[in-house]
Design a protein around this nucleic acid. Structure first.
Ligand code: MN
Ligand code: MN
Ligand code: ZN
Ligand code: ZN
Lengths: 142, 142
DNA sequence: TCAACAGTTTAGAATAATTATAATTTATAA
DNA sequence: TTATAAATTATAATTATTCTAAACTGTTGA
């Protein structure tokens, strides 16, 4: 989904009824310039900040999963206690800021092609992604 | 912790009292040749298979976290609904089999050094790890 | 246009992983 | 051996997520 778009048409095209809730969620997610990395909770917060209406938590889950299934969102796992989603659905690499718990896309040219020399027999490679964990310089472990 | 070891001494050295439960868990985890990737549930299952005594779930959680804090275990996130732990605590890469949900270490030479050209300013890189997602060749998406 | 029907929303219950609590037990230092 | 702090345990609490089932809405075709 591209920014500044008629999400009603876009949703209909992919077989999702363009309900009020879905259109609103799409606007929050896709009407932006940069990739958006979010948890369900982040999204719920954004919705209540940017919109008047409130959308039930179940609907936010339903819609995010529907959009993911249609290929408009991608799930990212960095932290096992909650799911992150990503409006950038391409195979790409991330920085993860361990201080702020923020995910940031790597630019194409920041990491060169990762070459996997041997694969597991009988399996095909679906994706090769790099996670770069960063933290502030003055480390204070306990 | 190395295999075939006196875990009583090893635990004491790191300031953990070598209780019966901890020693048993260490034996299950570290008396093996290959890296062990496991969920808490996997470990509980292994314990009840390989030992007579039963160890409470709370103690398994406590011990795994204690060992992790001391640097004998590493937490891996591939799937957001449960935590994986890894007896290989070095920075290394993984294959993740999306069919069987198995994590497998990459050999050193299977992926060459990943070069991160730009970093986020003010941050230091803690780790650079690759996740290769694989699945059986005959894909059946829905 | 508008009824019918499938698809969607919703509140709330259920589930599952994990963490907290608080009483009991154990390891160890004196 | 005893005192004390640390660890274990059963169980309750928490949190993210999914399920349920009733109410509601978007769409289709008469
Ligand atoms: Mn965690
Ligand atoms: Mn998942
Ligand atoms: Zn991203
Ligand atoms: Zn590993």
């Amino acid at each position: 989904m591209t920014k500044n778009f008629n999400f009603i048409e876009k949703l209909r095209e992919t077989g999702l009824r363009p309900t009020k809730q879905r259109v609103k969620i799409c606007e929050v997610l896709f009407n932006r310039d940069k990739t958006f990395h979010f948890t369900i909770n982040d999204l719920v917060k954004k919705i209540s900040e940017e919109l008047n209406e409130k959308i039930s938590l179940a609907t936010v889950y339903n819609t995010v999963h529907a959009l993911q299934k249609k290929g408009y969102l991608k799930e990212i796992s960095i932290n096992s206690d909650k799911s992150y989603f990503d409006t950038n659905t391409t195979v790409h690499h991330h920085f993860y800021d361990e201080d702020t718990h923020q995910l940031i896309d790597c630019d194409e040219n920041e990491i060169e092609n990762v070459n996997v020399k041997n694969n597991i027999t009988g399996k095909k490679i679906n994706s090769v992604e790099v996670l770069v964990r960063v933290a502030s310089d003055n480390q204070n472990q306990n």
